[in-house]
Each structure stands twice: as structure tokens, then as C-alpha cells.
Simulated assay, not measured.
Amino acid sequence: MRAYWLLLLVVPVLCGLPFTRPAGILVSIAAMVAVAAAVRPSLGLVAAAVSIGVTVIYRGPPQPPGLWLIFELTPLLVLLTRTARAGRSVAALVALAVTVLPLRVTLHQPAHHLDGSVLVVATAFACAVAAAGLGLYRRAQDGRRAHALAAARRSQRLELARDLHDLVAHEVTGIVLEAQAARVAPAAGSYERIEAAGQRALTAMDNMVAALRTSDEDVPPRVHGLADLPGVVSRFGPAATLAIEPGAALPAAAGSVAYHVVIEALTNVRRHAPAAGVAITLSTAGILTVVSDMPEISATRPTGGHGLEGLRERVEAVGGAFGAGPRDGRWEVRCDLSRSADVPGNGRPQP
């Protein structure tokens, strides 16, 4: 690898000798070092130092610097863009090298004029500012892209955590309660219900794994919605009732949220008051309420769960409003999904 870089520096210098004479060796070496640094930015400090040093010590005629100027200026601008994008402090030194580079030509003109030097330096400075600005713009784009990626990953983790809590924990809770009841007084069908709940928990986990593996081109996994609520309520037992007003409808996203709200509410009832009655209603205005005959519960359990907090995030993600708390001696969970486009009477066109 070192031999490759040595050839990259030496061969062009030797090829240029017939045109630049020995006086041009310094400027040609500086140009080749700049080319190497543009390809390999880790050499940026060396390239900037060599360029500035040659500009300071060069005392030859203006023709050699003029010949090599474009071959050094262009890679230095590329290097400046890359170092600015990477946020490296060497970018300032590279910008200085770009700015003073034309002085090798103007300071050695036979009829030197200060105005000419000022003009070319200002032009080179403008090029340096443009290159640095491009690098900083690309750096800002990289930052936004990284932030968006981190936000997407966090959203995916939260969604997975909610599904684990709402779907799997609901079935596992049912399994635990059925097992406890069967241990005290085995009832007909207990083991069948335990088996069915276990199968549903496994199915829910399979669906989550499939969702993580699904690409944009694949068919998305099944999403639970309002049509699944009767089955959930019937499995809870006769203490739970479901009333959906005729004409009540929700879009897929809001319907999935409503399903998760009911699942979490029933899971909390099973944990805190298994014998309590539950009344679930959904109005045509998109208002979902779950009222249960159980005492007040906290939003976060001592075991570290965040069920109500997770539901609030789900509801607010689709533009709804969520509330939970005691009301008239009962515990009420209220979910307002009236902003959904499919809800009649909200002032939006029907699909």
C-alpha cells in the first residue's frame, strides 16, 4: 500500500519535470499530496501543512505554480468538503491552504499588483466557503438521517413492547388465573381454555416476529380490530358485555387501537378484580368506554408495567384522546377516536 502512494506522488512529479523544471518540484509534490489526501482524508493535516509550507517558501517563477494550481486546488476543495462533513478541526487549516494557494502565482509576477492578489485570494476564499458549506450541509443531512433512523428504531421497540404487553400478557394472565382456579377446584374445560390461551399467546408472538421480518414489498401481517372484540369479550366470561352502536365504524389504525384498549382494560380487571363486571361500549361518534366494578388502580404497577401509559401513546398516535380514572365508584377507561376519518358525524367525508 505504501508503494502505491509513493508511485502516486513520484510518477506525476517526474512526468512534469520537462514542463516545470526543478523549480516546480515543490509545487508538484504539494499537488500530489493534496490528491492523496482527497482520496484518503486521514492525510488532510499533512496535505494542508505541505500546501501552506510550499506557499510560504516558494521563490521560483509563476509558471510552475500556475501549471499545478488546478491539480492542487480541486483536491483541496474536495478534502475541505469531506473534513467539514466529518466535523474535523483540520478543515480550518485546509480552508486556509485553499485561500492562500493563488499567492504562489500572483506574488511572483514580474509586474506585481496588490489588487490582483487580493482578488484571487478573495475568489479562493469564496471557493473555500462554498466547499465548507457543502460539507456542513451534508453533515446536517447525516444528522437528520441518523435522528430519523434512531426515532424509527425507538418507535419499533415501543410498538413491540406494547404488543408484548397488550396481547401476550393478556393471554398469559388468563392462563395464570385458569391454572389457579383449576388448582383449587378443577372445572370442566379448564385445561382446554388454558391450552387455547397458550395457543393464542404463541400466535400473537408469531405475528410480532412476522411483522419484524416483513419488508415493504411483503403482505403485512394481520392487524386486530373491532371484528375481534366479540371473541375477546366472550372469552373473558359472562361478567363482560360489549355494546357497539349500529353504524359505529373505525379505520384500521383506530380499530387496532380500540382492540388494544379493550385488551389492556380486561387484563387489568383480571389482575385486580377477576370477579368484577365490565361494560364495553363504542358509540357512532367514535367514543370507546370500558367501565368496570373494581377499585382504583395505578397507571404503573410495582412490577414495572406501563399499561395505561402505553395505551395513551397508542391513542394519541392516531390523533385521539385517552383518559382513565375512578368515576361514580367504578373504574372507567375512555378513548375518544372521533378524529378518525371513518367515524360518522365528524365532518369528514366517508370512504
Rank of each mutant, 00 (worst) to 15 (best):
L6A: 10
L8Q: 15
P12Q: 04
C15V: 12
T20M: 10
R21D: 08
R21C: 10
A23M: 10
G24A: 03
V27H: 01
A34K: 00
V35M: 11
A49Y: 03
A49K: 07
V50M: 08
I52D: 11
G53R: 09
T55Q: 11
Y58L: 04
R59P: 01
R59E: 14
P64Y: 05
G66S: 05
G66L: 05
L67P: 08
W68T: 01
I70T: 15
E72H: 11
L73T: 02
L73E: 09
L76R: 02
A84Y: 08
G87L: 00
G87T: 02
R88E: 15
A92G: 09
L101G: 05
P102H: 02
L107R: 11
A111W: 14
H112L: 15
H112F: 15
L114E: 09
G116M: 15
G116W: 15
A122V: 03
T123W: 08
A124R: 07
F125L: 10
G133R: 02
G133C: 07
Y137P: 06
A140S: 15
Q141H: 14
R144C: 10
R145N: 09
H147K: 12
L149E: 13
R153A: 09
R154I: 06
S155M: 13
Q156R: 14
E159Y: 12
H165V: 06
L167Q: 14
E171K: 04
E178G: 03
Q180I: 00
A182T: 04
A188T: 10
R193F: 02
R193I: 02
A211V: 02
A211D: 10
E217T: 14
P221I: 14
L226N: 00
V233P: 04
R235Q: 13
R235E: 12
F236L: 09
P238S: 08
A240F: 07
A240Y: 04
L242D: 01
G247A: 06
L250N: 01
A252N: 12
A253Y: 05
S256Y: 07
A258G: 02
A258C: 05
V262N: 08
T267R: 12
R271E: 01
H272K: 07
G277L: 02
V278T: 04
A279C: 05
T289L: 06
D293Y: 12
D293R: 11
E296Q: 10
S298V: 14
R301A: 13
P302G: 01
T303D: 15
H306K: 06
G307M: 09
G310S: 01
E316T: 08
A317T: 08
G329C: 01
R330Q: 11
E332Q: 10
L337R: 02
S338R: 03
D342T: 03
P344F: 01
N346T: 01
P351S: 05
